[in-house]
Structures are given as structure tokens and as C-alpha cells.
Design a protein around this nucleic acid. Structure first.
Lengths: 198, 198
DNA sequence: TCATTAAAAACGACCGGTCGTATTTTTAAA
DNA sequence: TTTAAAAATACGACCGGTCGTTTTTAATGA
């Protein structure tokens, strides 16, 4: 086995487990040891992969958002003349997975925004860029939908993308403590089937 | 000074500082010692006031929501025939204060929902009841506004109250990392000046 | 052989919580 | 009303453990 790929494999494993633990227990609620044990990486080796827990956190954030961007991007590319439908189907997919996970977790970005968004500059910047990338993609999808006539044009795509992201985040928090998918479903219905339509 | 009130005073001080620290640094990011030092209460005395950090957290949550409920309640009572205006003015007030605080903090409920909403049963229940109380009040205000003809009646007050709370929470998270009041302003405008009106 | 990297061991600081004890407050009997 | 017993509170030292990080040693590759 090539040595360089094993290191990359370990790094990937750390990031994956970082997502899981940070999501379930929060940033300060998760010790490096837990993550390291889950990937069988010695504690002393951690700093060969990341320079600090904070930098690790920032990397986890970027690692977390990637699949969401690529999935939404795929949906948008597939459905040529129905961008709004693509967005609907994308969120419906997410809701199904949330239900499968019994409403544990929610969104790592939302949780970390509240926990360390104001205290860690490094993570704050990572959160900023992650959300900006996500927002830009959603915005382009809504712009498509506007051109296709399925979404109101008296609001900018940016405004609607921000509103959708923010409401989704709030609904995810709510879902966690209500242990119900009603908030996220309501969120999608209110915005995608009503407010965004004119 | 009556001695019995000193205990109540200490307890109150602990709760107040608990709100501040939990909001700025999160639950796991805040040590009891920090809070105790801020109120000049010895470590050993803490457990005369609260049985554990977790129970303390649950109490802090209830302590936090109280002023918001009474403030919104006051606004609703004052403006007899303009419940929607009362809600608008209430949130406008909050926005001003958020700007004064330079967007540090946000909402304790939102932060704690993400951080410990899934791990601490005690705090989860406290969050549930706090939000339910807040939601019920907002719901009654929206119902008034419906009867007054200023809010659409094809959606239930409960649905709109939930949507407003969730969007507000998400916007507060967003505000923290963007260091701008634009998200919360947008949230109020989109819902209170558009979506709720028909 | 000698740099470079992985891993083990150790670091001090701090965590939430407990302990014994001193002091105060409450209760109830005298 | 006084007094004794009991319950509650105040307090700081201290518990075992874990935190994130650093230093030191072992292994590896050129």
C-alpha cells in the first residue's frame, strides 16, 4: 500500500468521524481522543494531520458541506426545465434521511454557528465560506426557476436563498428537540410551495 | 439585609451569568468556575443552589426566556387593535439590541438546541417547554392579528408562529457569523411584511 | 548515515463533582 | 420565651479523569 494514500485515508477518516462527533456532541463536547479512537489513530499522531483542534474543526466544516453541494448541484443539473422541482426533491431527500436518523444531528453548520461562531475566528471563517458556497448554488437554482416562470421575480434569488437556508437551519434545530420532522416539512412547504411562488 | 434574600440573590446572579457565559462560549465551553468567580460564589456552594451543571443549564434556559415572554406580552397588551404592529415593534426592539451588542450572542435557545439538544434530556425538555411557551404567546398574537384582519387566515396561527420562530433562530445564527443584522431584518421583513399578509 | 515522520509518553491546566467541617437557619420541645 | 436538636447552607481543599498540546523516543526511507 502506498504510504501517501494511507495518510490521506487516515486524514479522511478523522474528518468523517469529526463530522459525526461534532454533530452529536458539539465541538467542546467532543474530545480529540474519542475521534482518534474511532479511527485508530494514536493521539500523538493527530498533529501530523492537523495543527490544532481549531484548524481541524475548520477542516471538518468544509468536509461536511461538500456532499450537500454536490448533491444539490446534481439535482439542479438533472432536471433541465424544473429547477424548483429539483430544489424540492433535494430537500425531500434530506428530510427522508433525517427521519431515518431519528432526528439526531441536524446540521453541523447550524450547531457550530451557535457554539463557536462567535469565539473561534478560524471556524467562523470556515463557516462563512461553507455557507456562502451553499447559498450561491441555491441562489443560482432559484434564478433558474425564476427564468422558468415557476418562482416569483419580485424578490432576488439571493434573498430567497438566504431565507430558505436560515429557515431550514432553524427548523433543523427545532426538529432535534421536538423529535419530529414536522418543522422541516413545514419549512419546505411554506417556502417552496407558497412564499416563493407567485 | 435579610439573609434569605441573599441566597436568592446569589441564585439569580448565577443564572444571569450562566446566560452570559453559555451564550458566548456555549455549554461545554463554559466551566462552572468561570460562572462562580463572576458571582463570587465558592465552588462547594454551587451544589446548594443546583444539583448539577445539567440541572443548572435547564434552569438557565427557563431564566433566559422569561424576559422575552414578558416583553412580547407587554407589547401585545399595549397595542389593542394592532397585534401585528406589536409583533413588528417587538422584533424591531430585539434587532436594535442585537446591533448594540455587535452581533455577539444571538439566542441562547438556538445555540443550546444545536449543542446539547440531542444529548441532555433535562436540557432538551427545558428547551421544549421554553420554546412552547414562547410559541404559544406568539401564536395568540398572530390569532389576534388575524381577527383584526391584518394577517392572512388561510394559515393557522400556530404554523405561522413556528415558522417565525424557526426563521428567526436561523437568522440569528447567520447574523453571528456574518456580523451583520441583515439576516434578522430580512427575516422580519419577509415574514411580517409579506408572507403573513394577504 | 541522517533526515523525516509516526507514535508513545508526559505535560500542566482544567473539568464536574465530593468531602469534611464550620456556620447559620429552622424546627420543636421545654 | 428559651433552649436544644436538626436541618440547611457556606466554604475551600481535593478527588479521579480528561482536556489540548508538547516533548521525547522509535521507526522509516533515502
Amino acid at each position: 500500500m502506498p504510504k501517501s494514500s494511507k495518510k490521506e485515508l487516515n486524514r479522511e477518516g478523522l474528518l468523517n468521524q469529526g463530522v459525526v462527533f461534532f454533530m452529536n456532541q458539539g465541538y467542546h463536547g467532543t474530545g480529540l481522543q474519542e475521534i482518534l479512537d474511532a479511527v485508530n489513530v494514536p493521539k500523538g499522531s493527530f498533529y501530523n494531520y492537523f495543527s490544532s483542534k481549531e484548524e481541524f474543526g475548520a477542516a471538518v466544516i468544509q468536509h461536511y458541506i461538500e456532499p450537500f453541494i454536490s448533491r444539490l448541484s446534481t439535482h439542479l443539473q438533472q432536471s433541465g426545465s424544473d429547477a424548483l422541482g429539483a430544489i424540492r426533491r433535494y430537500f425531500d431527500e434530506l428530510i427522508v434521511e433525517l427521519e431515518e436518523n431519528k432526528f439526531k444531528g441536524g446540521c453541523l453548520l447550524g450547531s457550530l454557528m451557535g457554539e463557536i461562531g462567535s469565539t473561534s475566528d478560524v471556524c467562523q471563517q470556515s463557516l462563512q465560506s461553507a455557507i456562502a458556497r451553499y447559498r450561491d448554488l441555491l441562489q443560482s437554482g432559484l434564478a433558474q426557476a425564476q427564468q422558468q416562470g415557476s418562482v416569483r421575480t419580485d424578490k432576488t434569488p439571493e434573498e430567497m436563498a438566504d431565507l430558505l437556508i436560515n429557515t431550514w437551519q432553524g427548523a433543523l434545530l427545532r426538529m432535534q428537540i421536538e423529535k419530529s420532522s414536522a418543522p422541516v416539512k413545514q419549512c419546505c412547504h411554506d417556502l417552496l410551495d407558497d412564499f416563493f411562488i407567485r
